[in-house]
Amino acid sequence: MEFIDYYKILGIDKSASEEDIKKAYRKLARKLHPDLNPNDKAAHQKFQQINEANEVLSDPEKRKKYDTYGKDWQHADQFEQQKKSRQQSQNAGGQQFYENAGDSDFSSFFDSMFGGAGSSRQTKFRGQDYNAELKLQLTDALFTHQQTLTVNNKNIRITIPAGIENGQVIKLKGYGAPGVHGGPAGDLYITFIIAPHPQFRRSGNDLFTTAKIDLYTALLGGDTTLETLNGKVKLAVKPETQPGTRIRLKGKGFPVYKKENEYGDLYITYEVTLPTNLTEEQQKLFTELSNLK
């Protein structure tokens, strides 16, 4: 447990007046408040620190305790214990002061000094926001489906709309840390991480893939079957199709986020595979063909 200099955190000196503390807190809150720094974990942590500093220094009673024990807070325990042992017969509740409040938005230093998240505070504070990442396969994002997440031992069932994008963040209101003194709970921000697919690449709502066709189909035309994310499609290959030719299948791409029955397109690039291990006759025929050009 590290000593935390609340004066330093607020950038004020020990003789600061209540007004100075208020001013310093507000100035920093304007920079670091989670409302002004969405998805910025570092800012959220700093805001928590200034909040804690303000909580202590703006309360004259707490400030006095902090000023008395703060600098040598390690000895506060011993001091209190000595005091307690002297008053043991009369005062059985003294140890309550040092009870840890368990999960809290405040540092362990704060907990040890004040026994939890400041029971005398009147101001309502919004709970901290939580951030979580959810990894999906590309195929998971094809359909609207439900998943159960466990956040801080609480099961949350969420609906993931089809077409959700890699890096997209959704907010679940009120699923963050509980508020302090009746303040609203924070929110839960879920960032979706969609793993790359070995065969299909996605750009927005469009999908890109390659289809291998043999030399004869490329030259003479024909049919080939392609396995898409939604099932097989039959492709009619035009005669004299060049390697790298790209075709578009309209509406066979990815579902558009939160738009029912709207889909992007599927782009297919043909890769032409050349025959290997030619027989003598094949070699002869290719030579004849070569002589014809």
Partner: peptide, 24 residues
């Protein structure tokens, strides 16, 4: 903040487009 959200959205789209070329 609205502008920042729009720009973050744009960055996300651009990052995803870049991934296409990085995964090739």
């Amino acid at each position: 903040l609205n502008r920042m959200t729009d720009m973050q959205q744009q960055i996300m789209h651009l990052n995803n487009r870049l991934l296409i070329y990085e995964n090739v």
